[in-house]
């Protein structure tokens, strides 16, 4: 594979640099899950009104 050397960061396309940024992916991965699944889910459960028992 003819890869450009790692040193000339600038010559790699933006998309590739984003994909190569492991820690950016780590953070975005955690945030998406934390907001859409966990955060929203916790909000739903904790704001649930108590059932009115018959």
């Amino acid at each position: 594979m003819p890869e450009p050397p790692a040193t000339d960061e600038e010559t790699r396309p933006l998309g590739q640099r984003l994909f190569d940024n492991v820690f950016l992916l780590l953070i975005v991965g955690i945030v998406v899950m934390a907001v859409i699944y966990t955060g929203w889910g916790l909000f739903e459960v904790t704001t649930l009104p108590p059932a009115t028992l018959p």
């Binding site: 992916l25 975005v28 991965g29 899950m33 699944y37 929203w40 889910g41 739903e44 459960v45």
Partner: peptide
């Protein structure tokens, strides 16, 4: 995968009364 796969966790809660449809379906 990194962005969207983990939230599939919600399919285990699809019959849980505590969660609303919007949350279930989006996830």
């Amino acid at each position: 995968y990194i962005l969207f796969i983990s939230m599939a966790s919600a399919h285990h809660l699809l019959v849980d009364p505590g969660m609303g449809s919007a949350w279930k379906i989006v996830n």
